[in-house]
Design a protein around this nucleic acid. Sequence first.
DNA 1: TTAAATTAATTTGTATACAAATTTCAAGTG
DNA 2: CACTTGAAATTTGTATACAAATTAATTTAA
Lengths: 211, 211
Amino acid sequence: MTKASLYQQLKQDIRQGVWPAGSVLNQQKLSEHYQVSRIPVRDALQQLKAEALVVMAGKASLMVPPLTATEAEELYQIRLQLEPMALRRAFPQLTFSLLGQAEDLLHQIEQDQHLSAADRGALNWRFHLTLYQASHCPHLLRLLHSLHQQVERYLGFQEISLNYADTSHQEHWQLLELLRNQDLDAAIALLQQHIQQAGELLTNHLRQQPA
Amino acid sequence: MTKASLYQQLKQDIRQGVWPAGSVLNQQKLSEHYQVSRIPVRDALQQLKAEALVVMAGKASLMVPPLTATEAEELYQIRLQLEPMALRRAFPQLTFSLLGQAEDLLHQIEQDQHLSAADRGALNWRFHLTLYQASHCPHLLRLLHSLHQQVERYLGFQEISLNYADTSHQEHWQLLELLRNQDLDAAIALLQQHIQQAGELLTNHLRQQPA
DNA sequence: TTAAATTAATTTGTATACAAATTTCAAGTG
DNA sequence: CACTTGAAATTTGTATACAAATTAATTTAA
């Protein structure tokens, strides 16, 4: 387990619930679990801490942060500001190649029958990122990636993905169509509605099933 | 030099140009300079890396990132989206106590005669933060803080601060006045103009004096 | 019984030493 | 002369050991 991959692995394990929300992550436990010394564990934790994927719990201990409905709403409000901005800045530089790549991802989601909710979520997000990448705004993309990671953990639940998967997927096709037709305003409007809806779904879920 | 303070110190030293843009930060050099072992240096660097206050330079080395005019513009565009949002969400929860605190900061800027450009910049930012804090949006505040840190390094230059200091300061008083009068829309409009102007000043400076 | 204080246990923070990787630089080749 | 190649030097990555701090458990006092 090399350093970069320990960071990746730990992040993935947090995402997948190996270390659930509220877990206190102590260095020795982690170093034993991943069969490395505490030093690379510390390195990974420092990075995760700076990204708010783990948070302080007390004076020195770190934990996987529970996400409240209020926080989720906040995160989606931020995305509601930034993702349209990313799309607007990407729009003039969208190539056929890029739109094709995005379309490929949508086909992939349709074809792969045995896709877990998590995997489908990852592909959906890659669809968004593929479009945004044309903006050539590294800081904006970094922020969006970071914001997405903070909620990613909660997107696998049945209550969220069930029934919504289809709607969301159809909206992705619509978005692609609007972009192909050079209708930026409509695309932005659709994107905003898309994000708002996803946000409401998550916050409602969190309000019903706190923690 | 304890761990948290090494992180703070290193950040401050980057801000103040001890390690200028483009500098490669190697661990041994830093550990000797700060009289600590490489371990706390690594911890601090990991955190700074995750905040984009240092960036990879090659496969393993880290450096203080130069800021291009394009990036500065990007960062200010992001702030232009998020700071109005922060003010909007803060507005209903702004107390007289908080507005008083903000006013105190403005008085402090006026009274302290021998204030460096950096110190004045820090107080100005604390003025903004004081208002935004009423929003009770931890993630938004964290982002804004992070965004500000990325440009802070460049705000001390004469070309930027000279002449603009007065304008900026007056706008802060205006902003406070509008908030006291419960005129949110005007406050937002002023804030947007305020940020835009600051952004243009910095990007123009960077275009003239690259690196 | 509760709350504060003290001690014991655990956990984090740091230094040193060594392994693995990267970077540099010089020699060799076309 | 540019371009590889390869070894030397530097630098980063990791393990172990120990110091300092935090957390917990236990005792003591109100």
